[in-house]
Structure formats: C-alpha cells, structure tokens
Design a protein around this nucleic acid. Structure first.
Lengths: 252, 252
DNA sequence: CGCCGACTGTCACAGGGGTGTCACAGGCGG
DNA sequence: CCGCCTGTGACACCCCTGTGACAGTCGGCG
C-alpha cells in the first residue's frame, strides 16, 4: 500500500503562473471601482479606502476599460448596470487579455444573472446593497486566492522550499531530500520560529505516538542538516532548543 | 475515532462518457460535499453529478476531514452548521495544510458570518437555498482561477506537446504514444513542476479511485519514459519524487 | 572553577519498503 | 485471426530508515 506521506497539493491549483499576478504580500491592494451611480461609487470608494485599499474609480464602462489599461489595478469591482457597454461586456473584454480578479456588483439578484456573470469570467458576484465589510472580505478572499497560487514556496536564506514540486533547493540546485527528511522540513517550515518537541514531530512526521526514547528525530535532523546547512556542525536554520526539540529559524 | 452513524459514500461517478476529454481544460472536477442534512446533501450530490462533476460526500466535519485526506478532492463544498466541529473549524483545519478551494454553504446570511467565513480561509460563501446551477457556476468560477491557461503546445527540451493535434514530437519526429501514455503526459504537462501522487494520477488519467497498490502508474510511466526520455534509465523530463509520485520538469 | 548528570550529535549497520523492470495474459479493435 | 495496448504480479535492487551505542556538549550546583 503506497501511502502518500506528504501533503500533496490539490491538482486544481497548478504551480507557476504566466498571467500577471499583482498585489504582492503586504502591498496595498490597488482597486478599480467601476460604478455609474455617484452616491454608491463615492460611498464605496470611501469605505474601501478606509479599509486600506487604494481605489481608482470610473463612472462608465468605457472609462473603466481605459483606466484599467492605464493603471493596471490588482482587482476590479464592476457594476453590471452601466450606461453604454454593460458590466458583463466589460468583463468579457478584460478577460480576453487579462486574468486579474473581477468582482461583479449588481442590484439584480436573479440566479440567471449570477450564472451569466460568472461565466463571463468574473471571480465573484455580489448583490447590492452590500455591507462594505462584506465586500472587503470578498475582495480579500479573491486576492488571497491569487497570492496562494503564485507563491507556494518559501525561502530560508538560500534554501527554497517548493511545496508544489515537493523539492528543496539550495543556491538553486536541487537537494535530494528523502521522503522523511522532506516531511520533517515541511512540518518545521509550517511553523517557522516555533519550537517543536520531539513528541510533536513524531506525531506530525511519523504519525505515531512514541513514548520510548530513541534518537529517531535527532538522527533525521542530523541527516537533514547535513544537506541543508552550510556548516552542519553549526546550524543556522534548524536550531536545537535544548530540553525541548527543534525549531526552524525564519530568515533574518 | 468514533464511528459515525451516517454512511460515507466514497465517490459517485457521472455515468456515461469516458472518452479522451483531455483536450480543453482537462479532467472532471472532483468535489467533496460536506453537509449533514440528508435531503440537501443527496439533492446537491445529484445535481452536481448531473452537471459533470464527480462528487464524494460526507455528513459530518470529522468524516469530511478524513475523506479529504484520503481522496484529495479538487474543491470542497462545506456546510457551516455541522454537528461536532463546525464548517468554520473544518475550513481552518484544512487551511493549515492545504490550499484547495473551499466554498462555504450556509443558511445563515448574516453579514458577520460571511466575513468570518471568508476570513477563516474560504474562497466563496453561498447562502442556502441555492440553485444548483448557481452553485455550479460559482464552483467553476473558483476552479477557473486555479487553471493555468495552457497554450496549445508546449515544449520541454526537444519534446513538443501539441494539444490541438494531440501529438507529441521529439526532435521533430512524431512519437507514437498510446492513448494512455498520451493522457498521462498531458495530465502531467498541465501542471509542470508540480508533483502528482500516484493516486492523483489514477484519478486524472484512469478516472478511478484505486486504493490497492499495483504498479499500474509506474508501468505506464516506464513505457512513457522509454519513448520520451533520451536516457530512460536517467530521466530528465519525468522525474520521480520518492514517496510521492511523479513530476514533469519544466524546461530549464 | 570543576565535576556530574542529562541531553544531544554522530555513526554504522541490518532490515524493510518503495521503485524500476519485465514477462505474460486478457481485451479490444482492425 | 492477428496485433497492439494494457493491467497485473513477481522479483530484484537500491536507497532509506530505525536502532543502539558511544562520544561530545551544555547547564547546574557545590
């Protein structure tokens, strides 16, 4: 029986991405709000700005498309009922070339509209009236999804852990970790800076409660250090916490 | 773990066709539906199956988590009100280790719930009662984000995969791949650089959940390597990820 | 300052498990 | 009827892994 020992990334979210994926970690999201109703537009702009976004606004589909091309926002909040070209069409035109997240905003709550909206390429569909904090939550959810897909690897100095490829590289070249070593490193890297006891590591990596004392964890840590550390005898990544266990130090 | 009274149905397959549906955006989505209400669960399972998904179901949070670990679905539809651990908690636990899309499903439409739900890591939040076609549209919208826009042809060194022509060439001349070999290579190439477990590959290429251990995948990989690799005994394209499965390396 | 105990690092080795490989039989279509 | 593809089981090999013993190190205490 071939038990898969390490969590495998779901197949539906592939590794790299070729589209432009803006909105980095930490950076302030830059939104484009396209809405023709002055009151709603101003109100939402204010609310979203308060919640920490940068907001550009447009009052028509044409303006919206133009502004989109100029400014390259991270996300678009798009009203459906617009004079001229409507929201669905704006959405489709943008989707012909770009992949950025689009949230449709509408007063119509017909199910068929939801389906049409989502099929024209939108990522979410929100019905007015909407609480600003709800819209904010949905914006963050959509942005979060994008970040997840583009960055599923973490770096510790020159050591890079790629969870999708299930590989660990150091100075760009592949470290040939064994399955157990990889699991150990993945579990440690899931909680950077946090000390994990041998007991915890046994449960997490070996999946059995082991009360007896053996040098199992130590031996595996040693082998891992031999591959990961610059100077295995003076480890800087996988630190020993005396009396407790081990801890993976985040990069300085 | 305590035995849960409600039986867990592993997988229901949308009947009928099993042709080469690798052409466009790939395989049938595999969903996990976690919902304790029998009527709703059965209804949604039927509806989603009709819409072309493969669906596994669970009636409690515990069952859901267990099934999730076993089956590795592409997406989870998760009821919030569950006996035992609730949907929010299930969501958070899954998010501790995995990135797959999660859609929360609930009868409560309080704004605060939406915010809490999305912040616990969900990708979308749908209020019951929901039209199956709306849920389907939202599922597809969420999955669409994760799909890499795969071009019609991609090159891996001297090996060129032409999705339109459904041919694979090496150094310009046609490799006569068998249907299964072709599907395997196409599935791998849809996620370059991502390690896929044998179980995932069985689901994607052979479309059945096979828990027993046979050398099926290995044998097919071997045959594929014999045709694709320069030195089949030292593969550079289809790499083995020990303890996990296989991975198609993107060109350097 | 030095001793002592407890904890940790290190290593070699034997056993086991995962993977590559192959041959064969059944299935399916030409 | 024939040939190709495909799934299966067997088998060997190699690497991984757990274990125990021992040495080295750290901290505490007198």
């Amino acid at each position: 029986m071939a038990v898969v020992p390490v969590p495998v990334r779901p197949v539906s979210d592939p590794g790299g991405d070729s589209g432009l994926r803006v909105g980095q970690n930490g950076a302030v999201p830059f939104l484009l709000l396209i809405e023709d109703d002055d009151a709603i537009r101003t109100g939402l702009e204010l609310a979203l700005t308060r919640q920490g976004h940068r907001v550009a606004t447009a009052a028509s589909g044409e303006d919206g498309l133009r502004l989109f091309k100029e400014q390259r926002p991270d996300l678009i909040v798009l009203d459906v009922m617009l004079p001229g070209i409507d929201g669905f069409e704006v959405c489709r035109r943008i989707r012909r070339t770009d992949q950025l997240p689009i949230i449709l905003l509408t007063a119509r709550s017909d199910d068929i509209d939801v389906v049409v909206g989502l099929e024209s390429g939108a990522d979410d569909y929100v019905v007015k009236p909407v609480q600003p904090r709800v819209l904010d939550a949905r914006i963050r959810a959509v942005l979060r999804r994008g970040e997840r897909e583009s960055s599923d690897s973490s770096a510790y100095g020159t050591v890079v852990i790629d969870r999708a490829a299930m590989t660990v590289t150091k100075d760009g070249q592949d470290l040939q970790l064994t399955p157990t070593e990889l699991r150990l490193l993945l579990e440690l890297s899931r909680r950077p800076g946090q000390a994990l006891s041998r007991q915890q590591l046994l449960r997490l990596v070996w999946e059995h409660d082991y009360l007896g004392d053996s040098r199992l964890v130590d031996a595996c840590v040693q082998r891992l250090r031999a591959k990961v550390e610059d100077v295995p005898s003076a480890p800087t990544l996988i630190r020993t916490v005396r009396g407790v266990g081990y801890r993976l130090d985040p990069p300085a």
